[in-house]
Amino acid sequence: MSEERSLLRRLRDRDERAFRELVQAHRDRVYNICYRMLGNRSEAEDVAQEVFIAVFKTIDSFREESKFSTWLYRVAVNHCKNRIKYLARRHDRDRDELDENSGGINGATTGMPVRAPQPDRALEGIQMEEVLREAVNSLDEEHRIVVVLRDIEELSIEEICEITDLPDGTVKSRLHRARLALRKKLQKHMTS
């Protein structure tokens, strides 16, 4: 804890080495949250960068009332939500333009950029990753957040409540519904 305090103090003093230490310590987790939320590596990298820049810029506003990591993940989740909204708007706009240009022939797609399913999908390696990515991506944003934080990042329900600003009961019920939906989508790929 005192190490974290000292790192925060150095961050507030605009110490570049402290910033690098911070990024090094949390980059994988922040990147993974962004990747699972956005389903795209380059978007995830871009958003994860923005998260660290925002944290560094606003470090003075962190009051140390919660764990630093909780605050960091909250910033990450908020950035991801904003990017999802932006991508959905951009997708809608692109679709409208496509409709206008093609007379509405090719426009039958929905909100998030999910790739069209391919036939012959095997269960292992890269293809299993694709199946999982698409299954997580197909969840509603509010369900995706809790699955990513709980089932992938293994955060506690209390931490998820703090990050999402939701009451305990809502987090649990969303988690249950998300797991039900995920199970339905992945059922044919599971052994049990």
Binding site: R20, V23, Q24, R27, D28, V30, Y31, N32, Y35, R36, R41, A44, E45, A48, Q49, M128, E129, L132, V136, D151, I152, E154, R179, L182, R183, L186, Q187, M190, T191, S192
Partner: peptide, 23 residues
Amino acid sequence: SHDEISGLLKARKEPAPESFTND
């Protein structure tokens, strides 16, 4: 089924690119 799904998801955690900190 949760343990299996969760296991699959956790096993595929994505590390950040090597150059991330420098970038």
